[in-house]
Amino acid sequence: MFPYHSHQMNPAWNYGPVLSVQNISHSFGAKQILHQLSLDVQSGDWIGIIGPNGSGKSTLLSLMSRAQAPSRGEIFLQGRAINSYKRKELSRHMAVLQQEALPPVSYTVREVVEMGRFPYQSFWGLEKEDSQVFIDGIMERLQLEDLHDRPMDQLSGGQRQRVALAKLMAQSPDIVLLDEPTTYLDIHYQVQFMEMVRSWQNDCGLTVISVLHDLNLAALYCNRLVVLEDGKLVAEGSPDEIMTQEQLEDVFQVNTVIVEHPEIERPQILVSPNLPTRKVK
């Protein structure tokens, strides 16, 4: 069994959405990127944020992660304004996988994974409990044992992304935010990555919020999809509700055929080479 270091949740919070985005707007200079957007995320959800390029997906994720503050509106994590969290405290609840891969530094895999324990360490770098066994579990789970003393600059893209995931696990958060985690991976590593997140979620009751470009992967793994268009939330629902020909044509300007996955009950998309002519952007 995977030893999961659970920590103290906010004692005042025991109901309601784990993350609540309330009426946020965000502008960058004169350009408004998000318009009065609200979203509630329930504990254990895997949310997929989808939408065309420039629709504000990554901005929304970065506001949720507190990397930026919204121009207007507020975000609550477990019932408390996200701004009121101390940095280390926030990192114990929430871990973020950025769109850019980990840089090719000369630190070993194990050293990078251990950096994820930072929010649990004191000023001098000591932890209350020894986390070595916990880290061992993560290394084993993500098949990183043989790579443990390999420097990061000698790894392939897929391996590096696994290290990034291991580092998130070391943070043992309640929520993870993933910004296009599969973009640079080949199809094997894409599925491997998503499966690893899914098994982590199943074991630990994790909440996952991910920006995904690949709609088929989104339909396979997410239980709820949120569609952004021009900075507005235009639809949300289960993959079956969202993955319709009309919806996709409207938002993405493509003609599609929706089929059911022959092995699991999830919609999958076949794109048609003929672009719709109705609306030209």
Partner: peptide, 14 residues
């Protein structure tokens, strides 16, 4: 060490 991964990475680790 954490800053070597980038400032934003380091911030996300607390």
């Amino acid at each position: 060490n954490m800053l070597a991964l980038g400032e934003r990475q380091a911030a996300h680790m607390g």
